[in-house]
Design a protein around this nucleic acid. Structure first.
Lengths: 214, 214, 214, 214
DNA sequence: TATGAATGAGTGTTCATTCAT
DNA sequence: AATGAATGAACACTCATTCAT
């Protein structure tokens, strides 16, 4: 969850907490924010769950909002890594499948992370850097889909839109896994991932078909 | 937005405010909750926007949470009405198109309403009645989709799942309209609605196709 | 202490506190700030002394700092009024005596007020308006002294400087009265006020006298 | 600024900081206290400015308050030394001139020191020893003035009072120098020092003159 | 001697809610 | 029905101080 180059305590000096106070805070906040929401999670709660004093939060983060942004970016970073890991040699569809599968596994192993990025509305809480990091994540998917469009695999229309369409359905499945309604091995994710592809796939049923008007 | 049987002033007698104090509060809360969120909208703000004193809120609602639940249910009621208005004589697909179109128009004319129901996470704020009202809304769609499944129009698999899949994409379009990214006449909603149908439609590409594994 | 045109509750509507909650807060703050200092006087203390709840402070003042500035300006206003009340027909010396006497009486009847303006260092706590109000007070004295200088009553040199010199000694006496070391009728104030005049009076001993060098 | 008998490291052995950690802390605190005030200067700030860790403060001082008292007494000691340096053989007036001149130079070379003793209100922060040390300083001046009174140079009335009167004006000039409004060579200090003497000098205009009543 | 992470009591401030008018 | 001053518990955050290293 945390990247080494971001933790200031890489000095090896620690007083009595080999597990890392900062990491404990990050975990506590992540879990509370994603289960009870940002505003209902209080700093006393976060501290208690992390097993530290309230003031300790502010030794590691400037503010509660800063804490949110830090964990948000760390989460986005992890999700983005999964996108970049999908080999560019594969077809668009295969790459999306890889990405979905990686995220699915993440939703199983670290549900809070998925919730934080995809299922929580953060309003004005995210700073520009955090917004930018999410935009980059979306852009990575967009690039995959854009190549799919050039290859005739994906429908005509804005690649951005098909990105959001694909994401909306993948996230639907991830949410169910994160909520433990579905397991990773369940058919559900599989079916929904396929539906996600079908929603953006080029075919005789694609956009512009006659008779599709409302 | 408000149903007569819910307002305590059903007496028909109005003292000095023909617009209805309660309605003004409902409007104010609806707009604030959907733009700034529940927790960041304060009762002073709501009262000021409604043009009444702070205490007046509690003459019409037991609490801020109760106010949220009231407007939430009123919103769900409106959306549900649109579902029921789609004639059962039509095909599944046609009925879904009607529903989507009705909601699309609503998103154009009353964006806050759409946001409240579909785009705001309410956490533990909604009471059982409110949750139930949303469940009913979803069930209405489910029924439509279940008939589509019997008719071979919709893929095999849980009708509930295809309901959520269809909803996820329709909501995606509604959000863009509510945010004024798209107008009601835009191609966007059209394309996405079609994708929503393709995502649940039965076809040779449907679930269970070989080679779809991850 | 408070001017009618500044209190927003001139409506005559009051719930249960005919004495005026705002005035009680002003009094409490004035006394605490001048006895224990601004930083050591806490909002719980102020509220308790005023006999109200802590939150009530913020119904009347934007912040603790705002509260300080309000009472500061009110105090300066009172002191300035005393300056303006001294008839311009009198000699410089007589006017200064009138002013000193008025302030002396004020120090006896409302010591906190004198302390707030003359004896407390407010650092960066005062806003521009408050600083300006004090500057005006000093300028009023300066004008009196400037006329004295034109009339040959006061030494040559900056009228501003003689203002501060005169003020420094008058304040010395006021402080002793405010601290109840001296009463209003005591010789002390009298002697010091005379010394204050002698310090700025033009005479054969005035500035530039030979042998005065260090 | 620091006296050897007060520093705990009187061993003569210095580990790695020839400048003296304690002295650095004293300097940092002196400057911060006199520019931003005691309460607004935090221990992190003091430590940072001294270039040491926060905990190091407590290796040299029991508490922040103790630190204040230490530097306060050191400052008073320096000012007192200047008083004692004025030869008793001189006239009262000449001795006061010497003292004022010595302080004036100090205000130019070490303004913070002057501010700490004469311009900062310390409320209940000073311990009995510190108060005593200031009392001694004042008593030294009082003694000078008392001899002046016996010699008929100074007005009748309490020597204590004339001490405070003289001090008030001298401090007025010192403040301007410390704030760099005036330089040491400026006429201002000169004029004000003379006024200070005139305020306490015996003369035909002295206390008890007829017509001086308010 | 020096460090700096950790502490926790305390701060100023907010806000949903009450109630005398 | 409507008001708005008053409430007080809760909030995010600060900071002088401690102590294992």
């Amino acid at each position: 969850m945390t990247h080494p180059q971001e933790t200031p305590r890489a000095t090896g000096r620690r007083r009595r907490d080999p597990a890392g106070t900062r990491d404990r805070l990050v975990r506590a906040a992540l879990e509370l924010f994603t289960t009870h929401g940002y505003h209902t999670s209080t700093t006393p709660q976060i501290a208690r769950r992390a097993g530290v004093a309230e003031g300790t939060i502010y030794r590691h983060f400037d503010s509660k909002e800063h804490l949110l942004n830090e964990i948000y970016r760390a989460a986005v970073r992890l999700l983005t890594a999964a996108v970049k890991d999908a080999p560019t040699s594969l077809s668009c569809r295969a790459r999306l499948e890889r990405i979905a599968a990686a995220w699915r596994d993440l939703a199983g192993s670290d549900p809070a992370l998925i919730k934080l990025v995809f299922l929580t509305r953060h309003g004005d809480l995210l700073d520009p850097r955090s917004r930018e990091s999410f935009t980059q994540l979306r852009d990575e998917i967009s690039k995959v889909i854009a190549t799919g469009k050039s290859a005739g695999e994906v429908r005509s229309g804005s690649a951005q839109v098909w990105t959001d369409v694909w994401l909306a359905l993948v996230v639907l499945a991830l949410e169910r896994i994160a909520n433990q309604d579905w397991t990773v091995q369940h058919v559900g994710p599989q079916q929904v991932f396929e539906a996600a592809w079908d929603a953006i796939e080029f075919g005789e049923r694609g956009a512009g078909r006659p008779g599709a008007g409302l």
